[in-house]
């Protein structure tokens, strides 16, 4: 009877890396259906291309770094799925490829690959592309314009509500339009209801933290309420700040990215609150119309510091409690 030695505990939960990453992929797929519904099959083509590029480059880097390849690793698939969703459907294919390569080769792999990366690769890739081609990235086609799969895009390019907010105008969109996302904007970030359901799905599956999402949205509403960009109408400005741009998408996917957010629950909430404030800072004073991507990159650098301070504070509380308990005995 050949027996193997294993360390306790001898039973393990059924979840493994593939199922955890699978939840994120599952949460992303409905956004692709909505994008295909609005903008035609071009959205799916962009998604497939981006996933392929990310997967192949990630594999090459791991082989270069000499790590054993054999374990199915879905994290490049998640990065590949996120990047086209935040770009307009009419974006040329080459820009998506550049964003993917930058995300994997520069932001993810040098820091050590899967669990060690400090910055969110999708956010980094998008930031690079926004800086290099700002006019291409912030020009959106109106929904329900079927775009050709290849070849020239002749559709009319319009500015998104976030641009109008930045310019001080009021994006006159009625309530239901904003919720269902039939207004010009990034491919996956406009349909608010689908995003909300994805958030609830991830919270239930425990790969997203509900309190952190609430903290982020709370700071954003406070900022939008106290300093409205639309003069006078405070509630309206709160609604438009939340629905325009990639804010809700960022809450669901950038804030709960496992590798780059802090680990302890308390520091996740603090991290989300500060991220909300920094995002609004980028929107008010930033150079670009949508600063969420840069804010997330900046906040990832703080994540480790916030976690260490929280650990120090909590261990001090714990020691005080232990002393009190030992005195009582």
């Amino acid at each position: 009877m050949k027996l193997t030695h294993r360390f306790p505990p001898h039973i393990r939960s059924r979840e493994n890396n593939v199922t955890v990453m699978g939840d994120a992929v599952l949460a992303l797929l409905p956004l692709y259906f909505m994008a295909c519904f609005f903008y035609g099959p071009r959205a799916a083509a962009l998604g497939i291309l981006s996933v392929l590029v990310c997967f192949v480059s990630d594999l090459l880097c791991q082989k270069l770094a000499g790590r054993k390849i054999g374990v199915i690793d879905l994290s490049p698939v998640v990065t590949g799925l996120i990047i086209p969703l935040l770009l307009p459907a009419s974006i040329p294919y080459s820009i998506v490829v550049v964003a993917d390569l930058f995300a994997i080769l520069v932001i993810k792999q040098p820091f050590g690959g899967l669990g060690q990366n400090i910055f969110n690769p999708a956010a980094g890739g998008l930031a690079f592309v926004t800086i290099t081609w700002p006019n291409l990235v912030f020009r959106y086609t109106a929904p329900f314009e079927k775009l050709p799969l290849f070849g020239e895009i002749t559709a009319r390019l319009v500015a998104s509500p976030a641009y109008q907010l930045k310019m001080g105008g009021i994006p006159y969109r009625d309530f239901t339009d904003m919720l269902f996302g039939n207004f010009p904007g990034p491919m996956g970030a406009t349909n608010i209801l689908v995003l909300a359901t994805c958030l609830i799905f991830l919270v239930v599956r425990k790969s997203a933290n509900g309190k952190a999402a609430l903290a982020f949205l709370g700071t954003v509403t406070v900022f939008a309420f106290v300093f409205p960009r639309i003069d006078g109408a405070r509630l309206q400005s709160v609604f438009y700040e939340l629905c325009s741009g990639i804010l809700l998408f960022g809450v669901v996917f950038f804030l709960n990215d496992p590798a780059t957010s802090p680990k302890r629950e308390a520091s996740k909430i603090i991290y989300a609150a500060i991220a909300g404030a920094v995002t609004m800072l980028y929107r008010y004073f930033g150079g670009f119309e949508e600063g969420m991507v840069f804010a997330i990159l900046l906040m990832n650098a703080f994540a480790w510091g916030i976690d260490m301070c929280c650990e120090q504070w909590i261990s001090r509380e714990r020691r005080k409690r232990l002393e009190k308990k030992s005195e009582k005995l």
């Binding site: 374990v71 669990g115 425990k206 496992p258 302890r264 629950e265 976690d307 650990e311 909590i314």
Partner: peptide, 30 residues
């Protein structure tokens, strides 16, 4: 037990579940 855990020791993806679950309130990740 009949079958062994074949896929052991993936790389840690830093999800922080162990920090949420530890009954003593420690953070096993760090």
């Amino acid at each position: 037990f009949r079958e062994d855990f074949d896929e052991m020791n993936y790389t840690c993806i830093g999800c922080g579940r162990c920090a949420q679950v530890c009954p003593e309130g420690l953070s096993p990740y760090y």
